[in-house]
Design a binder for these strands. Structure first.
Lengths: 219, 219
DNA sequence: TAGATTGTTAATCGATTAACAATC
DNA sequence: TAGATTGTTAATCGATTAACAATC
């Protein structure tokens, strides 16, 4: 009775599928770079490192973009996935915290090539203000609101120390940012409607250590 | 009939649980730093950002380390989780590729504090050999085998460009490395018995972009 | 038409969660 | 004993996968 009417065809794509769409997009880009114009689900699955049944199931949530007996047109599927993810548009982002990691992120070419444009680098350390990193000015944290408004920033990246992460997140939210990528090794709490994803470098190593330890024990 | 006999009590911890153990460990460290000596599953779950039922279920795979009616001893549980993960021991790691990201990883304090010791930084670029980053020498990629043997390295980190990732992984595997953390935006293929985890910075941003786009569409 | 490959079904598997008996 | 909180059960939910009908 309360079905949302919409001209959009795709609805409720499972989270696990959403997380894999960028992987498929990257694989398609690689195939395109190699001059491949058509591929089967088997070939694309191989390039993406997943099971082909899973790939077809995932793609079926987007629509029916393949041709039975033939496969997928690389360029066409690439465009459809990019559109679905939203990377056909430009996403201005701000990075807060310009230590080693912030530096690496600012220079990361993978952002720009996928429509993410770093419009500002913010740091609490006054001595760094005015510095230029990767062609972008380092500015005071207090400029956040102005920058968010000027550029229509919806996505913020936290590369600040753990102790500052919650404060940074609070300020981001109050300025209107609704998506946060958190590299600080700290849990941050945000209101409903704000998405947070986190990347914790040492957690990934710890997961490997766990399995490594088990290998050693069973040897 | 083929049950493995072992003095170890914990068996077959689900992957989803393994991935959360480091999060619990971090939360416990934070509590300990705040001088808190005992906590309930509710309190720890809050600090870790998970549901308390899930936390208790997760901990139950390790054993029975709490006290009904009382809660968990922070130090004791911390030790048990650290032991289970394997971070009570020292893990020598090598990092291959010393660009911006490799630089940031080499300097990342969260590694050392959790028992991961960067024993070498390797780079194909000869002009960087001899350089010292974060107190560690940058050495030729060809030294990998010697370093792995000398230090007993089991874990390798790939911070090289995407195009080099598979080659680096192959070399790591042939030198005896059995766990790889891959930061290169490329799928790498390894033999059975070798664990790979990957961190792709731009994929996380793309997942946020997808949700951001949906918020905009439904507004 | 014959061969190939998609898109979908349905079975299985694993993860989450609320509820509560056990017990400190 | 009464109150609190764990550890476990069982129900639910979501994700994966093999198999195959649909169809190019």
């Amino acid at each position: 009775m309360t079905a949302r009417s919409s001209s959009e065809s795709s609805r409720d794509i499972p989270e696990a599928t959403v997380a894999r769409l960028p992987v498929y997009l990257r694989a398609l880009n690689t195939l395109a770079d190699d001059g491949i114009r058509t591929c089967s689900s088997e070939e694309l699955a191989l390039a993406a490192g997943v099971n082909s049944a899973k790939l077809r199931k995932d793609l079926s949530y987007l629509g029916s973009y393949g041709t039975r007996g033939v496969g997928y047109d690389v360029d066409y599927l690439r465009y459809q996935i990019a559109r679905e993810i939203g990377v056909t548009q430009d996403w201005p982002v701000v990075i807060v915290g310009i230590g080693n990691l912030g530096h690496a992120l600012a220079n990361y070419s993978g952002f720009r090539s996928r429509g993410f444009r770093v419009v500002a680098l913010l740091d609490a350390d006054e001595s760094r203000h005015g510095e230029v990193v990767a062609g972008v000015d380092v500015r005071p944290f207090g400029d956040l609101e102005e920058i968010v408004e000027t550029h229509g920033v919806a996505i913020g990246v936290i590369a600040a120390p753990a102790g500052a992460a919650q404060d940074v997140a609070d300020r981001m939210v109050s300025c209107g940012i609704t998506s946060i990528l958190n590299f600080a090794p700290a849990v941050i709490v945000v209101p409903d409607g704000v998405d947070v994803r986190k990347v914790d470098l040492s957690i990934e190593l710890q997961i490997l250590a766990y399995h490594e330890q088990r290998k050693a024990n069973s040897a």
